[in-house]
Amino acid sequence: MLSRIADSLFWIGRYMERADNTARILDVNYHMLLEQPPDTYKLRWDPLIAITGERTRFYQRFEEANAQTAFDYLGYSADNPNSIAQCIILARENARTIRDRISRELWEDINGLYHKINKLRDEGEGLSRFCDAVKRGGHRFHGVCDATLARDEGWHFLQAGCALERAEMTARILDVHYHQLVEGPQILNEARSHAWVAVLKSVAAYEFYKRQHSHIEPTQVAQLLLLDPRHPRSVRFNLGVLQNSLYAISGSVPGSYANEGERLTGRAHESLTYDSIDEIFSGGLHDYLEEMQATCRTIGAHISQTYLYYAVS
């Protein structure tokens, strides 16, 4: 398989996942804050911008983070390379170049989502409808991939892209909220628990959490989002998916590794498998999450160097 085609598949996965996650956090935050007094706005919208790593650029453009500016910037802005619209445009561009390599259904689905969000913008639809369309688009994307793509190397690059992006996004979401809620300025208990609910909802884990725990406890939330092997948005779950896809691509067997990306994925997955949440907290959750995100970025760079943009010598 040509590296360029693998690269396109990898990034279709990443951009679609990035769009979906961004829509989730926007949407959940918006709905949560509908019930909050207005003076908490500034406090509560800022972390979202932080999650996407866009703080510097954002505050060059806007004075404050509120529902409108956050939606403008994270939803449609062409200046923000990680805005939802930009992610979908880039996913579509990638799909277009490799149309002969993916199913017609997948192309039509991504193309359809692109046209849908353009239409919503033209009609001036608000944040809620917009995020809903993107989330549904994300679900449909996974369904169409699952139902129409051959399980070849290309499939594994797509999977690897989705899993890596999702793992990093979940870690980012947890990190920023934890930082704000536990280490940031004091806010009311009620508001705090409200915020943790929002975190769970933004990764579609609220119901799953409630089935196991009667009340919201930051440690338990972190345990689920980081270490739970059953939930499809937990960091551990996704590193497991990533590891399997990397094995499938290189042909190496579990317990070994063929390249640096595999080694780091395996090591991170082992750590998430055997570390306890108490150990993690005593060592400092923030540091742990920081390192996890950095690992994800390094893995991404190594996948790129190994398969996609390797130096020719």
Binding site: D7, W11, Y15, G53, N82, R297
Partner: peptide, 12 residues
């Protein structure tokens, strides 16, 4: 050494 990336990674 390559520069450490703070922001989200982008396709090259």
């Amino acid at each position: 050494e390559e520069q450490h990336a703070q922001q989200q990674q982008q396709q090259q």
